[in-house]
Design a binder for these strands. Structure first.
Lengths: 149, 149
DNA sequence: ATGAGTGCAAAGGCTTTGCATTAGG
DNA sequence: CCTAATGCAAAGCCTTTGCACTCAT
């Protein structure tokens, strides 16, 4: 899904632009976080990012807040109590998650375009009827991952 | 969605059965929590439940854990940091949520049966292909509620 | 009587904040 | 130079736990 190599200039430019638009710099630490999130095909928890990067806790928290506000990073919901983070869908493309209800592991997946389209149409109608200004949807598959079955 | 009156015997019986199956009693406090969650058509946060019930914090937390384990209550994820709780879908029926990305408010909605069915079929295929044992799905509409637009 | 449930207060753990220092423009 | 960013440590806040008491069986 978002398996870029570590010198993806297009991605970096996009991120830098988003940060600048938010009045923020693309600092070394922020680049480090982005690289860590690019590394796998799944969202990472804060302990995982800390282990992978050796950033100061406070810097990680502060930068995740900035990156989230700038639309670079998204917080992912699981079944356990751990917040997990991934690059925003605007950078990596729309996708969904397989969430293991036992171990909390999360994996990225995409669903067929036609289903996605039908869903979008239905949700748009629904939102309009409810007086809700729809921005996007979240669709997660909850169950047991192969290791937990 | 789950706007039962406060003496819905069928619901109480169902809940009592689920609790008994989990080796738990249907105590006064648990009934109080269930009543609070029945009250509205939206999930409630812990502060909201506390305000509505005047339970001891520790009792609320402990009982929510029990009720969740017994399949009576479900934890709902929003965009803000607040955990919210509602009666389980097995009691109230399958539904989805309108989540306001600004104020965090959550409202229940249902989508048309045919869309839901198509979605189920697609997700089942997807899960199988990924070696994932699908239990259920979560679909949330994220955007701005009428008050925040 | 006996184990579950309750409430208060203390402990725990993740997250945020204060402040002095460092780095980037 | 000057402001944003960083790192360490302290403070905060939600959640969990310990313990004695109460309730229901």
């Amino acid at each position: 899904m978002h398996n870029h190599n570590h010198h993806n200039d297009a991605l970096y430019k996009d991120i830098a632009a988003r940060l600048m638009a938010a009045g923020q710099r693309f600092t070394t630490n922020r680049r480090t976080i982005v690289d860590a999130l690019c590394g796998g095909d799944r969202p990472l928890s804060i302990p995982e990012i800390l282990k992978a990067t050796s950033l100061a806790q406070s810097s990680l928290y502060r930068n995740l807040t900035v990156l989230e506000a700038a639309g670079v990073v998204t917080r992912v919901i699981t079944t356990d109590e751990w917040g997990r983070f991934e690059l925003s869908e605007e950078l990596t493309g729309h996708h969904h998650h397989l969430v293991c209800s036992q171990c909390g592991a999360v994996t990225d997946v995409t669903i067929p375009d036609d289903v996605e389209t039908d869903l979008d149409v239905a949700l748009a109608k629904l939102a309009t009827r409810a007086g809700f200004e729809l921005s996007h949807h979240r669709l997660d598959l909850v169950g047991l991952c192969s290791s937990c079955q």
